[in-house]
Amino acid sequence: DDVDVFIKIKDPDGDETAWFKIDDSKTVGLDQPTIFEHPWTPSKVGWYEFFAWVDMEDTILEWPKTSDGGEDGTNNQFGYDGSYKGILVYEKLPDLQVTSISVSPLNDNGQAMVGVSSSITATIANLGVRDMTSSEGSMLEVTFELRYPVIKSLATINVDQSLVVDGTVNVTIPITFTENAQYRIQVKVDYRAGNQNGLIVEANEGNNDMFKNIYAASAMDAYVSDLDVPDNGNDGLAGKEYPITFVLGMSNLPDEGTYRLNFTVSVDGTF
């Protein structure tokens, strides 16, 4: 009965508290462990070390005995042999991540289309342990880059939005794929050239980008439109010369290469 537990705590600066009693005195039985609790709020970021001592004041008669008939109390301390309980305390911060990248529109094979006005959409999430502040939200930027077949910057968008924990925002930019090729797209959140960690302090600064590989296939389309046979004052009479007019064209042309469009005009009817 009346078992007491004392603990001491070493903070990240190496400063230790004195031994102090936690919880109420309790009866410790044989079959089930007895839990002693102590509320604790860390005040610094870093590693804390915890040590515990049961029956520190030696009021409980214990077994086994030592060779001289005394009590063996060495196992009453957690940490007497150099062991301790360590806890790493992190600062409560947001954690920005790119969770998905999509391209639209796609053809029936799931490929991007050359020469077609398209878009890239990135989903940004705050997977940290606190909401972003308004100040952090004002600095939220998303950078889009092309890594293959050429390396170039596509856009940097200032989102200016504070994300709550598990909150997301979609950021979209336009793009037109210019050649039949495999493309590699990189999206970065909170990226600033020359500043490895960006502008927003996060719980994890190493998970701020994502890549997407996609093939862009030709989507060229030859067309004819606005076909007309004006009367030109012939009153619809046979044997007269009638002009045939139409518009001939090609859409969604890649930038590279020269293209030639062949066409045939035929007249079907009763002669």
Rank of each mutant, 00 (worst) to 15 (best):
Asn195Ile: 14
Ser138Cys: 15
Val164Leu: 04
Gly167Trp: 00
Asn158Trp: 09
Ile185His: 14
Met132Cys: 10
Asn204Ala: 10
Gln186Leu: 06
Gln182Ser: 02
Val129Met: 04
Asp160Val: 13
Ser162Leu: 02
Asn204Cys: 12
Tyr183Phe: 08
Arg184Asp: 15
Glu202Ala: 05
Leu199Gly: 01
Tyr183Met: 04
Ile185Ala: 15
Phe177Asn: 12
Ile151Lys: 04
Ala125Asp: 04
Leu163Arg: 00
Thr176His: 08
Val142Arg: 01
Ile157Gln: 14
Val189Tyr: 05
Ser162Asp: 08
Asp166Leu: 04
Leu127Met: 06
Gln161Arg: 12
Asp160Gly: 10
Glu202Cys: 09
Asp166Thr: 01
Met132Pro: 02
Val201Gln: 11
Leu127Gly: 03
Gly128Gln: 02
Leu146Phe: 04
Asn204Gly: 09
Glu179His: 03
Thr178Arg: 05
Asn170Glu: 11
Val129Asp: 11
Ser138Phe: 12
Phe177Gln: 12
Asp190Phe: 06
Val159Gln: 08
Thr133Trp: 06
Ile200Cys: 02
Asn180Ile: 13
Lys152Val: 03
Ala193Met: 07
Gln196Ala: 11
Leu199Lys: 14
Val159Ser: 10
Gln186Val: 11
Gly206Glu: 15
Arg184Glu: 15
Gln161Glu: 13
Glu145His: 02
Gln196Trp: 08
Gly137Ala: 07
Glu136Ser: 05
Thr156Phe: 09
Lys188Ala: 07
Val150Met: 00
Arg130Met: 15
Glu145Tyr: 01
Asp190Lys: 05
Ile173Glu: 04
Thr172Ser: 00
Tyr191Pro: 04
Gln186Gly: 08
